[in-house]
């Protein structure tokens, strides 16, 4: 899977799961603010990534990811 494919798949999956426009998801945007993540929704992000890519992000690792570009990097590295 190329970087472009990862980016477009992440954006599509998260836009659907979190009911936001794909256009608000950009590499430099803040993940938590953009998706309005709170303690209840964090697990939705983990599950969506796991289902779409088979990549298991732990809570600890997720806390180190701030921007969407960090998330793309993480998935690319762990695919």
């Amino acid at each position: 899977m190329t970087r472009e494919e990862i980016v477009s798949k992440v954006n599509a999956v998260l836009a659907e799961e979190f009911e936001v426009e794909e256009s608000v998801i950009s590499p430099d945007a803040d993940i938590r603010k953009t998706l309005e993540l709170d303690s209840l929704r964090l697990v939705d992000l983990i599950s969506a990534i796991q289902v779409a890519f088979g990549v298991k992000v732990t809570t600890e690792e997720l806390h180190l990811l701030t921007k969407f570009s960090d998330l793309y990097d993480y998935i690319e590295k762990n695919l």
Binding site: L42, V43, I46, Q50
Partner: peptide, 9 residues
Amino acid sequence: EAEAEGVTL
């Protein structure tokens, strides 16, 4: 399906 910070989905 998944678990994070005491919340199980």
